[in-house]
Design a protein around this nucleic acid. Structure first.
Lengths: 232, 232
DNA sequence: GACAACTTCTCTACGACGTAGACTTTACGG
DNA sequence: CCGTAAAGTCTACGTCGTAGAGAAGTTGTC
């Protein structure tokens, strides 16, 4: 007994050994389709038609698997759009990251929280590449290295914040055409939340890219002003 | 057999029945001390000297427990600092939230990700109160409700982003006095990450409150400009 | 072909987790 | 003293991550 459930298993598909990329990309598929909790070693093993234990050859443990998934996602970022000036580039990269987040909303929680307790230098290199890239961009634009760092922080802070905000703006029941109900706002006590309830219709049609762009305009104009002040 | 391990247990301490607040606040203590994963039903039960199952009287399940913890934390926010103008108020609230985050870094992941898939209207009211409050503040300052919403989003987006950024800037080995080593940056290949490595010393002494304030200055000046433009 | 070394994958098993369901203990009002 | 409701406990199930030993398949050497 103890034959494998699928004879196919022990022949053709096993011939091709797994590799890390294959493991990580199907892991990502599972996360996209079923959420973070949906990704278990057993579930992933099933998807790859392997014993769950075999996965430990490609990821030291589940945490490492999750780190790998974030790296795969970050690699989707188009590295360099050639844009005229640094502001346009930052704008473009922001929109790219936003779209990436929308494509993999379940991974955003990882992107944001996984490295929380991992010191900068020990993080997967994929996570650090955008940082290095933007530093170069800003320094090239005329900021001093230190200023570039501060600017980067303001920029990325805002960007991540926006993405989190946008992902939160999700809908209870898209079929419902009454804005209040669609967002579940009817549950709020009217006297404690007058403004929020009044904004129901506005809240209901959120346009993330416009919202992001407006925020960027504020931020970038602030940064540009700083750069000008310095030029004099 | 099957006597409780501690006779004290069945007498004095059981006399006072548990209540939700007690459960949530010790849950918070555990999260602060041992991280999110450290908070299990069994661990919390042990801390409260109760059977883990008894907790289900005060929280429907673990997820609800976590939601409860975020509410407890948000309740720590001082509600209204009386400041001269709206900008100063936003500044003050931002710093308050930052300090809150530093006090409970492990909860930040919750604050940021828990409501990710919970529609706005269904979230714990504690989560929504700051939103309502800031809307009121901005509308009072002269923004239209819709503008206030956009301004809020830019503000909170930046704020959350900053907090996440700051929490990430943690140290490998505080004893190490060489900046590069302290951050673990020596691991980075020098040719791929020239700027990042060069910034080692600057990265090493991060001052979160200054950083936050600079970002706020940029953001608030942008918002004020928008308000002025409208006045004319 | 024989055999060994190495890679890849599987089996079995353990302890920890969340929690369903039935039960026991406690407090109290009549 | 009894009934009732609230608070807490016990037992048990299924699922999870993963340690450790070993099986199967692949490759190199003579």
């Amino acid at each position: 007994m103890a034959t494998s459930p699928d004879p196919f298993n022990s022949r053709s598909s096993r011939k091709v050994p797994l590799n890390k990329d294959a493991v990580l990309s199907t892991a990502l598929e599972i996360v996209d389709a079923e959420g973070l909790d949906g990704l278990t070693m057993r579930r992933l093993g099933q998807e790859l038609r392997r014993d769950p234990m075999s996965l430990y050859r490609y990821a030291a443990n589940r945490a490492a698997l999750l780190d790998g998934v974030t790296e795969v996602v970050l690699d989707e970022l188009t590295m360099f759009a050639e844009e005229p000036d640094w502001q346009a580039q930052l704008r473009g990269m922001a929109h790219d990251l936003r779209l990436l987040a929308l494509r993999h909303p379940n991974v955003v929680a990882l992107l944001v929280t996984r490295p929380l307790s991992t010191p900068l230098g020990l993080r997967p290199l994929g996570t650090l590449r955008p940082l290095e890239q933007i530093l170069g961009l800003l320094i090239g634009a005329g900021f001093s290295p230190t200023e570039a760092l501060h600017a980067y922080r303001a920029y990325y802070g805002f960007l991540y914040g926006h993405i989190l905000n946008e992902l939160r703006e999700c809908i209870v029941d898209p079929e419902e055409n009454e804005a209040l109900l669609r967002l579940g706002l009817h549950r709020l006590p009217a006297k404690d939340f007058p403004h929020l309830r009044a904004l129901g219709p506005v809240l209901a049609n959120y346009e993330g890219d416009v919202e992001l762009d407006q925020g960027l305009t504020i931020l970038l104009s602030g940064l540009a002003a700083q750069l000008q002040r310095k030029d004099r």
